[in-house]
Write a protein that binds this DNA or RNA. Structure first.
Lengths: 292, 292
DNA sequence: GCTTTGCCATGCGTGAGGCGCATGATGGTG
DNA sequence: CACCATCATGCGCCTCACGCATGGCAAAGC
């Protein structure tokens, strides 16, 4: 049973003539006549009575017509729903980002995007980066705002560069330093993220470039938590500057100019983005990266 | 879009593997894989994400799945409804009969049929014979209980034979006759049905066989009305004996033994009867004609 | 009463497209 | 590193729906 046949059935019932219906449907009269015969064969009953002036519904035909209307309407609703979701002006984009980024960048970008595309719904998900990659790969989200480019076929668009600073407790001996070098950290205890996290790789690379390997005292996946650990005197940390000070820590700029992390938008490139998501990418690309 | 494809879509979502679903649906894996690609092409979006362990629904896929479930369910409901209607044990039969027959024969037959097939619904229509033929031809009713075999392709099964008697007012000079011949009517004024009615042809044939042609004083399509006209002294009539006496008329048996009318069941033979209607016909055939 | 006209049904040839079989591409696993 | 699962795809076949033309039938018109 073809949905088009059901649509034709509704048209036949509303029109009352095979020939006239065929014209309005822009199919040949034999095609429609055969389609009707096909449906009657499949349903096992006569749907229309053939009279000299055309066709009239049988009682069974009315039963079938009701169902045909319902089915056609439900199918129309489906196509409209999907079209809405795919419409770059009114669709939906599913965006995930790290919990730690909810404070400044994400709200600002979303506010600007909403002004540019007010009818697009944005479904937000905050989650640890591990789940984020998984959801990105599974298609549960289309876009992710993260701080590193995942391995594999992913697009990447930088959105913001964040300066990394050394974070120390307010009682630390370096509390009054205006600048400090990474080399100075050789004997410090470092609080950072666990291995396997993208941010850990970034910090490790910086340390390796400076020729130092500080001892890691505590690890946390959450940068805000790391700042709290530092405030509690459990070590020092290298964090983006916006994490400084919430718990009374002090941030000291690093002499290493490349001590930055880049926040960017990423998405799968092995299949085409839905139009609303593509529009979000275009928007971010036109907006350009901001300095944080 | 084929309904079978939607059914396959539901199965795919419930199973999670193309290969396994193909086995349970008893189609080849390529056929199912192509059907999925076909639906995704028609709907313009990815419905499943392909992962190493099989397939998982995308958000768009969940939208489509909901619609697919609804549509498949509605179609199942349609087929079940039609099957019920066509089931000779639980279906529906639409039966029409003349108003004048509602008194004895029809209730008795229906009571017996209902005992034999308690789950079959009978939709009754009482209407003038003109509408009855029209509805029979249009398919609005499947069976009709009438007193003559319509011209054309109709089946016929006698149900009851009714003796015709001469009906006279209680003041008529023949009021005490035990029997009377049709020839005696030569000078009487006759009340009968209009030309074109089946009953009129029956009476006319009887008169012609007897070699008389009484003058027709009044005509009415309704036999009960005719009896009333006779009671009012407007003439005599030849009627089935069960119409005698309601208004004080007297019925006198006719010497002509063939003065009977046959009540029977009729139906169109140019297409097959639905099983419940066929069952009714079989029931009436097995019951055999009764003498009225 | 016969012709005409409008219905729907059907025979025929063509073409699109879905299916099954076999094979390819890809990622996880022992 | 080979093996085994997954889904995708090239190929040939065959079904089947379509359009064109025609047929059958009944009602309307002259």
């Amino acid at each position: 049973m073809d949905l088009r046949d059901l649509h034709w059935l509704v048209a036949l019932a509303e029109h009352g003539h095979v020939t006239g219906t065929a014209e309005s449907l822009e199919v040949s009269q034999p095609a429609l006549s055969r389609a009707l015969a096909r449906m009657e064969r499949e349903l096992g009953t006569r749907l229309f009575e053939r009279v000299s002036s055309g066709i009239v519904l049988t009682p069974d035909g009315e039963v079938a017509l009701d169902a045909a209307r319902d089915i056609v309407a439900r199918h129309d609703q489906l196509t409209r729903t999907l079209a809405d979701r795919l419409d770059p002006d009114s669709g939906t984009v599913r965006l995930a980002f790290l919990d730690s980024m909810s404070t400044s960048l994400v709200p600002r970008v979303l506010r600007e995007f909403h002004a540019a595309a007010p009818a697009v719904r944005v479904l937000l998900t905050q989650e640890p980066h591990h789940d984020l990659v998984r959801d990105l790969e599974s298609g549960a989200v289309e876009l992710a705002i993260t701080s590193w480019l995942p391995k594999g076929r992913f697009g990447w668009l930088p959105m913001q560069e964040e300066r990394l600073v050394l974070v120390v407790p307010s009682t630390h001996r370096w509390r009054s330093r205006r600048r400090i070098s990474l080399e100075s950290l050789a004997d410090e205890e470092l609080v950072t993220t666990p291995r396997g996290f993208g941010y850990r790789g970034l910090v490790d690379d910086l340390m390796a470039a400076a020729g130092v390997s500080p001892r890691v005292s505590f690890e946390s996946a959450d940068l805000a938590t790391i700042e709290g650990l530092v405030a509690a005197g459990l070590g020092v940390a290298v964090l983006p500057e916006q994490f400084v000070g919430h718990n009374g820590t002090i941030g000291i700029p690093l002499t290493t100019r490349s001590a930055r992390r880049t926040i960017g938008l990423t998405w799968r490139t092995d299949r085409e983005l839905a139009p609303p998501a593509a529009r979000f990418v275009d928007f971010v690309g036109a907006r350009g990266p901001a300095r944080g």
